[in-house]
Computed example of a mutant assay.
Amino acid sequence: MTSKQFTSVWLREPRKATSPGRSRAEIVKAAIELLDEEGRDGLSMRKLGAKLSAGATSLYWYVANKDELLELAYDEIWGEMRLPDHEEVGWREAASVLAYSMRHTMLRHPWTADLIGRLPALGPNALQMSDQMRKMFEKAGFTGLDVDFANAALTAYVFGMTIPEIAWNTSASGQEYDADKMREAVAKAAAQFPDLLARMDMQRYEDPQTLRAMAFDFGLVSMLDGLERRLAT
């Protein structure tokens, strides 16, 4: 059985522009605009070529395939995330700001949810963020593998809370559910679970974004409390 060869756009030097006014940076910028408008399935070399008034074939000078283009676009998104100087604000405040920044960045670019775990994050922006996070948790007092585990706990929390939110937003795109009918449907579905139904505030379904933001804040504070407790013990 032959193993699949690992490839990445970051494993080779970028090719120089072949014509004035066109560069890899310009292509990536246009790709992100197209991804934001139409999602991952809406991105194609043909559509990107049309957006840039260039033939799709000419784009292959810069990227070997669509996956390489997605790698480049994905790394740009990591560059949008904010991690303040933990030396100035402390590790917990820095981690909190980063978590909110990651969530908001993903919500601005919902197609990123399809790439997490599927494409390698080997670009300069992603690696720089990873290095800064490592230093942040080391400064907090974590040592050895706990540095990596704390890092993974923070990112997994953000991904775990945000990806389902993106999935819901995407599936409900362009649709507005009738609040009264939704309340009726939930009440009917939970009719055999009166204790659970009593815990539900049906008015919250009229403002799900606020409820999600509150849930994210609650979970983030609890997760950071847990990390801080590990340091204390």
Rank of each mutant, 00 (worst) to 15 (best):
P120R: 08
D41W: 02
L48Q: 04
A121K: 02
F216V: 08
R204F: 12
A187D: 15
G55P: 06
E176I: 10
E87D: 15
R134V: 05
A172F: 11
V9D: 01
L52H: 03
Y177D: 04
E37M: 03
L197C: 00
A198Q: 00
A153T: 09
G144P: 05
A215V: 07
P110I: 03
A140V: 01
V221R: 13
R108V: 12
D148I: 12
Y205W: 10
L119T: 01
M1T: 09
F137P: 09
P164N: 12
K51L: 08
L72N: 01
K135S: 08
P84R: 07
L196G: 12
M214V: 09
M81Y: 00
F6P: 14
R199V: 01
A113V: 00
R24K: 12
I163V: 15
A198L: 05
G160R: 03
R108H: 14
T57H: 13
Y177G: 09
A50D: 10
K47W: 02
P124A: 04
T57I: 13
A198N: 05
T7C: 08
V9N: 10
L196V: 14
L70K: 01
A17H: 11
P120C: 15
D178A: 06
R212D: 14
G55I: 04
E184Q: 14
L83D: 02
S8W: 00
F159H: 12
P20M: 01
S173K: 14
A179T: 12
S222T: 09
D178G: 05
Q128Y: 03
M200R: 10
L98C: 02
A56P: 05
K4Y: 04
P124H: 15
L70R: 05
R12D: 04
L115H: 02
N151D: 13
A113E: 10
Q203R: 11
T2Y: 12
D146A: 09
L83Y: 06
A140G: 01
M81F: 12
Q132G: 05
W91K: 01
K47D: 06
G79T: 05
E71H: 02
H104N: 15
T112F: 04
T2S: 11
S53I: 07
G141Q: 11
Y74V: 08
L197I: 02
V28G: 00
A156Y: 04
M214S: 08
Q132Y: 03
D178C: 10
E93L: 14
W91Q: 08
Q203P: 09
G226Y: 07
Y62M: 07
A121Q: 00
A50W: 09
S222R: 10
S23W: 03
A189T: 13
G160I: 12
A95G: 02
R103Y: 00
L127C: 03
G55V: 04
K16T: 07
L211M: 09
L69D: 06
I166P: 06
A187C: 03
S58V: 13
R24M: 04
M136F: 12
M200V: 11
R199M: 11
P110Y: 02
A50C: 03
D178M: 06
A191L: 10
A25Y: 10
K16V: 07
L107F: 14
L231K: 04
K181R: 08
F149K: 11
D85Y: 05
L119V: 03
